[in-house]
Design a binder for these strands. Structure first.
Length: 385
RNA sequence: GUGGCUAUGGUGUAGUGGCAGCACGAGAGUCUGUGGAACUCUUAGCGAGGGUUCGAAUCCCUCUAGCCACC
């Protein structure tokens, strides 16, 4: 299921492939979120032309609407949404945190509440109440026919409150055991099924808690390992410290996934150097929709250190803001070196115009570019491992 | 030609003698296991000239421009 094909002499990066129920994908890989069974603005055909090999859906969102039963009645999520390649599903643990930041109404309060037993959710669609525990989260993911299932976890916020993070970690550990148990029961009933399950390491920004979490999760027979929590990706310096601190204890033979990381080429390069194989992030697509388009290039040094791969751009954070008035008559493509459909056919001026009039075509062309840009970046990085 | 009405940021407007506000627009920014959302910051105005007054977008006069009616 996970084959390492090539490894760097200079750092922890490696190129590999993961084999799933729906073919294989090359690592390191960026997985665009299709949370509600759609990558916003793009069709499955678009995604395949871009070179996407794996996407991510969300168990909680799909449970609320259209429900796992409905998806199951279509023969599973692949048939339902017309995507033939690999699908990884998130368990809904993240929404235990993210929904707690959103209020439904003054009377019903916030959309989620975490307890030791599981997570209580209020549907943002109709205010109805739902409860999800580890068993339920795994059942939903199995029912929709996910290729890679994520354990149910309690996503820790990026806070200094160590007591809380410790408590939260205990939940994640307990839920990891329950997730795995339910997964094994369900898999026993479908012997030819090659569905994989990944465990999630929490521990917030605390290195000792992270190490404890890692040791616990790696003691269990998960197929892959994920680092989760608000800190990962959001606080990049701390994310890198965590990866460095865990490095010697991370098993080499399992894919490593940093959840929610991938907003910037700079971030991606740094975590790949530290051995990360998989990541997902809403940012490339959301930034595109909000007018921020990737521009820049990899700079690959030719000395022997191997660590001098970097990214450079004339724009801050490698993001060109297409709304900026300086692009109103700009005849160039978003990025001169990009071979994507958008850059091959459309000018910055036209995209600027489409953005200002909120034309749906803008969302497609912009999202296409950003996902292609990240995917190409990974191709280049893989070649240079 | 005569009479009347009107004139406030780019646009639309509030302000009847006492700190010129609001909305949209424009300019820029935030966004990380989805928020096509939301928010933050910035910008920019009393048609022109004169008078009254401690003080004028506001009252008076002239001019200019627009609209309406009449000849």
């Amino acid at each position: 299921m996970f084959n390492i094909l090539k490894k760097s002499k200079y750092n922890f990066s490696r190129a590999g492939e993961v084999i799933t129920n729906h073919g294989k994908f090359q690592t390191p890989v960026f997985m665009p979120p299709a949370t509600k069974a759609a990558v916003k603005a793009l069709s499955p055909q678009d995604l395949q032309e871009i070179g996407i090999e794996i996407i991510l859906v969300n168990a909680l969102h799909l449970h609320l609407r259209p429900t796992e039963e409905l998806i199951n009645s279509f023969g599973g999520i692949h048939n339902y949404m017309g995507w033939p390649k690999t699908i990884l599903s998130d368990s809904g643990g993240f929404q235990g945190w993210s929904f707690s930041q959103k209020r439904y109404s003054a009377k019903l309060g916030v959309l989620s509440k975490v307890t030791d037993k599981g997570i209580e959710f209020i549907s943002p669609y109709d205010g109805s109440k739902h409860f999800i525990d580890a068993e339920k989260a795994i059942e939903i993911q199995f029912k929709i026919g996910s290729d890679i299932i994520m354990a149910f976890d309690d996503c820790s916020p990026n806070l200094d409150n160590k007591n809380y993070v410790k408590l939260s970690l205990e939940r994640t550990k307990k839920w990891a055991l329950k997730s795995l148990k339910r997964f094994q029961e369900l898999k026993k009933m479908a012997p030819e099924n090659n569905t994989l399950i990944f465990g999630i390491v929490q521990g917030g920004s605390f290195l000792d808690l992270r190490l404890e979490a890692l040791n616990f999760i790696t003691s269990l027979p998960f197929d892959g390992l994920a680092l989760g929590g608000e800190t990962i990706g959001y606080d990049m310096p701390r994310t890198l410290e965590i990866l460095d601190a865990l490095r010697s204890s991370i098993p080499y033979d399992k894919p490593l996934y940093t959840m929610g990381l991938g907003a910037s080429p700079y971030d991606i390069i740094e975590v790949i150097k530290r051995g990360v194989d998989m990541f997902d992030c809403v940012s490339p697509a959301r930034l595109a929709r909000h007018g921020a388009l990737y521009n820049g290039r990899l700079v690959i040094g030719d000395n022997s250190s191997g660590s001098d791969i970097s990214f450079e751009s004339e724009y801050r954070k490698g993001l060109l803001k297409i709304s900026n008035s300086c692009f109103a008559a700009d005849k160039f493509p978003i990025d001169h070196e990009c071979n994507c459909y958008t850059c091959q056919n459309f000018s910055r001026a036209y995209l600027h115009h489409l953005y200002l009039i909120k034309e749906p075509l803008y969302f497609r062309l912009a999202t296409w570019h950003n996902l292609y840009f990240i995917t190409q970046l990974l191709h280049r990085l893989r070649e240079n491992i």
